[in-house]
Write a protein that binds this DNA or RNA. Structure first.
Length: 630
DNA sequence: TTGTACGGCGCG
DNA sequence: AAAGCGCGCCGTACAA
């Protein structure tokens, strides 16, 4: 295959990935002090490096550790060629939150895509599994018995004092100390990681960092005209509805839970809806629920009640869309000539080690943009398209792999429609009459309604209507392998309080026990985490990492702009579609599979599958354009 | 005035 | 005593 010539140019840590590289001593530990606008982000040109300190792992055997074997350089990013040279000679760099240091090194002119990082924050996160530890340098040091007290300088910085005006002697002492502490932390982590088999997972998390920086810097591009048109549409509809809503409720606020509870269950005298067991649906704190799902169960009889349910439902959606997306997108296209929206990827937040994402200036984050608004995102260049590569049925396939589930494998290989099986049980009678007529709209509708239930039992879901429960049971019987594996996981956690997963990552549920009724506490999480984690925190990041590098090596003009759990999204040059697809699919399928073997010694029993789409926008359709008249 | 909890809703 | 999992962001309500 002709990707061979690009593969040959991958940096060595990617062409022959080997986590044991972290056991060597050819590393550079570094720490930067910078000016502090927006937490010192290197993305802001008004920020600059104040002080850089680094030390070399291979020099440390020569003499006793002391403050003097650090390199110290005052001044900006243009005076760090010595550091850049040292990094180019090293196997990897070490820092606490390497995304920060790498961002600055990029500004120093270093090609950070050739740098292998070891982030001590990620290191601690991998050790923590899902234990939600505080991951500041101080907290990590304390946890490993390495000191880690707050100092005067750290307090000053935390209080918002810019490092550029902190006395030089103080700042230098502080930065040198932090560098040495970071190295101690690294040495402690790698020792433990080797012992517990965590090096592979640390390696996988770390090679993702340079691609994430590259993706973050590009931003997501908004289509100005569409943003304006959709805003107008939503605003005017909101105005109409607000008038009606005010009349019906005497000016209640649709966003207020207490007010909605009063309106619904006191003023309109709705009977609080019940679940399948006949118990009133309540919030975790015991209040009557006013969610849209609960509202859907309300029995409206009078015209007033019917109007209210309809208007409240629509108004909630409108308000949500306007405040969370549309208003801010409008501000972005108004304020910024380039109409770019920036997000930040967080690598150490989630329990399952997925990425999370934070919206920066305009507070729109990249992972939960409503499907309805994906058509607002367009390529920044005329004639380009948005390309999206998706891992098809990823979590299902991974569950089938982990459970060596022959029935699942058979269905996947045979392209069996999983939702049809769901429909045949939940909508038994209705389904019978239409199941063999693929053009039937009724069939389509039943199938759509079945979708939400299909994979619920995969995550431990059992409750619902009698029909639904019948399906969940059928799923567990059908997928014997998955069910048995999940039972083993629960047993392992019951025994030891934690589960060692296929990648070596450990998840902890120390309070797990069997209740009097036989229910195992935490069982839904125990069923879910190993699947969600391996699928979307390992396989997809691996694929995106390689996709990013190969696109760059192939000198493509196209580039990635986002990744959302099971997919990557890029802006694609019209003449590069074929190559974009080839690289994308290769990475999501072949490369991810190969890496699993190389790094995790996991031979995937189920094939992966990638789906590719090119569109004028992130999503697009005639109906959508008609609806918003653009 | 500021910070936090809560309920709600969006995504995979 | 739990009833699919994982997140981030919103406005309200209310405490400090």
């Amino acid at each position: 295959m002709h990707l061979e010539k690009y593969l040959k140019k991958l940096p060595q840590f990617l062409s022959t990935p080997n986590p044991e590289i972290y056991l060597g001593d050819n590393y550079v530990v570094l720490d930067f002090e910078t000016t502090n606008i927006s937490k010192g982000t290197p993305a802001n040109p008004d920020n600059s490096i104040v002080l850089a300190v680094w030390s070399l792992g291979r020099e440390h055997n020569r003499y006793e550790r002391g403050g003097d074997n650090c390199y110290v350089k005052w001044g900006g990013e243009y005076e760090l060629s010595e550091l850049v040279d040292a990094i180019e000679e090293a196997d990897f760099i070490v820092a606490h939150n390497t995304k920060f240091e790498l961002g600055w090194l990029k500004r120093c002119g270093l090609d950070i895509d050739n740098v292998l990082p070891f982030c001590t924050q990620i290191g601690e996160y991998c050790i923590s599994g899902n234990r939600n530890w505080t991951l500041s340098l101080e907290a990590c040091l304390q946890r490993r018995g390495l000191g880690g007290k707050e100092t005067v300088v750290s307090k000053l910085i935390k209080a918002g004092v810019c490092p550029s005006i902190i006395p030089m002697g103080w700042l230098e002492r502080y930065c040198v100390t932090d560098t040495m502490k970071t190295e101690k932390l690294f040495l402690s982590q790698r020792k433990l990681a080797k012992k517990n088999g965590l090096l592979p997972v640390m390696f996988t998390r770390n090679i993702f960092t340079p691609p994430l920086i590259g993706i973050e810097r590009k931003g997501l591009h908004l289509d100005d005209e569409r943003v304006v048109a959709v805003n107008k549409h939503y605003r005017s509809r909101q105005q109409e509805l607000l008038v009606e809503f005010d009349q019906l409720t005497d000016g209640a606020n649709v966003k207020s839970g207490p007010q909605m509870r009063k309106v619904l269950y006191e003023d309109f005298k709705f009977e609080p809806p019940q679940d399948y067991r006949g118990e009133v649906i309540r919030t975790p704190k015991g209040e009557y629920s006013t969610s849209s799902k609960t509202m859907a169960k309300l029995k409206a009889t009078t015209k007033q009640q019917k109007d209210f349910v309809r208007i409240k439902g629509e108004l909630t959606k409108l308000t949500d869309a306007i405040t969370k997306t549309l208003e801010k997108a409008l501000q972005c296209v108004t304020n910024r000539l380039d109409s770019l929206l920036f997000v930040q990827f967080n690598q150490t937040i989630t329990d399952t080690h997925r990425l999370s994402s934070t919206g920066l200036e305009y507070k729109i984050q990249g992972q939960n943009i409503a499907r309805e608004f994906k058509p607002l995102f367009s390529p920044r260049h005329e004639g380009w398209s948005i390309g999206e590569i998706d891992e098809g049925q990823l979590e299902y396939r991974i569950a089938v792999h982990l459970g060596r589930d022959d029935t699942g494998l058979h269905d996947i290989l045979g392209g069996v429609d999983a939702h049809a099986f769901t429909a045949s049980i939940i909508f038994q009678n209705e389904w019978k009459s239409v199941k063999d007529d693929p053009t039937s709209p009724k069939r389509k509708k039943i199938r759509t309604n079945s979708k939400e239930h299909t994979f619920k039992p995969l995550y431990g879901g059992q409750s619902g209507t009698p029909r639904e429960r019948k399906y969940y049971k059928a799923f567990r019987i059908k997928h014997k392998g998955i069910t048995a594996t999940q039972e083993r996981w629960k047993a392992e956690v019951l025994r030891g309080g934690y589960l060692k997963t296929i990648t070596g990552l450990r998840f902890y549920w120390p309070d797990t026990r069997v209740t009097q009724s036989g229910y195992i506490v935490n069982s839904t999480s125990i069923c879910n985490y190993p699947v969600q984690s391996f699928a979307t925190a390992d396989i997809v990041p691996i694929a995106v990492t390689y996709q990013y590098h190969l696109m760059k090596i192939a000198q493509m003009e196209s580039f990635l702009v986002n990744t959302v759990h099971d997919s990557s999204i890029g802006e694609v040059h019209p003449e590069e579609r074929e190559l974009f697809e080839e690289i994308g699919v290769y990475c999501m399928v072949d490369k991810a599979t190969e890496y699993c073997k190389q790094v995790y010694n996991v031979e995937l029993y189920v094939p992966l599958e990638a789906e590719v789409e090119f569109k004028s926008h992130w999503s697009d359709s005639d109906e959508w354009r008609e609806k918003y008249d653009c």
